[in-house]
Each structure stands twice: as C-alpha cells, then as structure tokens.
C-alpha cells in the first residue's frame, strides 16, 4: 500500500516535471523542472531498492550534469524561446511517429499486464555488491568508459575554448 502511494505521488511529480519541461518557454525553467524529474526518479529507484543508483542519480545527474546546463544557460544568458512554425519534417513524420510508437508500447504493456508485482525495495543494490559486479563482470566496459570520459573532457576543452587569435610571426630582420 505504502509502496503504491509513494510510487503514484512521485510518479505524478515526475510526469508533471516532464510536462512542465515542454510547457515552459524559458530554458532555465525547463532545466529546473528536469531537476525535479531527476530527483523524483531517484525516489522511484529507492522504491525499487536501488539505493546506490538513486544516490548517484542525484549526485551525477542533478548535481553535476544539470548544474552544467544551468551554468551554460546563465553563461549564454539565454532568453525565452522565440516561437517559429517549426520544421515540417517534425510535423509530417515526427508526431505520427511518436503516436504510433506510443500506441505500440501501450499495446505491448496491455498485452503483458501479468508482470510480477514487486515489494518495497525489491532488489537491494548495495554499494558493495554493485562495486563487486562493476569490477569483476563489467571490468572491460568500466575501463572503456573511463577512456570515453577522457576523450569527452578533451573534446569539450577543445570545442569550448576560444580559437586563439593567430600569432603574428615576427619577421626576421634581414
């Protein structure tokens, strides 16, 4: 009972945040509603027992990635969005595509309503067990992600740094 109530409350907050992200015009409002979505998703993870995932979700997503977003919005001083008519491809292909995809997902879910019910904290993901799994079974992907992050850091630095004004080569006195 408690599980269902908590799920519904935080699920509602989650969906409200996601819809607010679409409804808001100003990027900062969108970013903050995305933070709300992420925080309530962390609660959903906790309900499923994934406590470490929940903590990392808050630290990494809400605390680092979204701060980066807010930071960039502040840095570029992005104002409210201007309305344009939008792209025609999105109208013609995108919205029917989303509707079709949504119908497909809904149909699959209705067909498979006999999914098992899980209690509160179904599968406890303690940091210890997750760490053991990460460093034994998933060692190679783990190391690969470290290289990925390194490349991403270098790419970000190269892309965001201002292109240097060309140095004038002092001509040799002859």
């Amino acid at each position: 009972m408690l599980h269902l109530v908590l799920f519904l409350v935080f699920g509602a907050i989650c969906v409200a945040g996601a819809v607010n992200l679409l409804a808001q015009n100003h990027p900062i409002s969108s970013a903050l509603s995305l933070v709300v979505v992420m925080a309530s998703l962390a609660v959903e993870y906790l309900l499923l027992g994934a406590e470490f995932v929940a903590a990392v979700q808050v630290i990494v997503y809400a605390g680092a990635v979204m701060v980066l977003f807010v930071f960039v919005i502040m840095l570029l001083n992005a104002g409210a969005e201007e309305r344009t008519q939008g792209s025609r491809v999105a109208l013609v292909l995108g919205i029917p595509g989303v509707l079709a995809g949504g119908l497909l997902v809904a149909w699959v879910l209705v067909q498979r309503t006999n999914t098992p019910e899980v209690p509160l904290g179904a599968l406890p993901g303690f940091p210890k067990t997750i760490g053991a799994l990460l460093f034994h079974q998933f060692l190679l992907p783990f190391e690969v992600t470290s290289i990925l992050v390194l490349i991403a850091i270098m790419g970000a630095v190269v892309l965001a740094s201002r292109p240097e004004p060309k140095m004038k080569v002092p001509e040799k006195e002859s």
Partner: peptide, 27 residues
C-alpha cells in the same frame, strides 16, 4: 543487478555527452 550496473554506464555516457554537447552549443 546487471540492470542497475547498466544505469551507471548510461550515466557516464550522458555526462560525457552533456559536456561535449554543451561545448558545441557554446561554440
């Protein structure tokens, strides 16, 4: 628990993507 471990990989990719993407946006 593999499902939960995969979430971490998705997060790493998302973080990398965010840093590079925002750098592109700034450029």
């Amino acid at each position: 628990l593999s499902g939960q471990v995969f979430v971490f990989f998705v997060m790493v990719v998302a973080a990398a993507e965010a840093s590079v993407g925002l750098a592109i946006i700034i450029a």
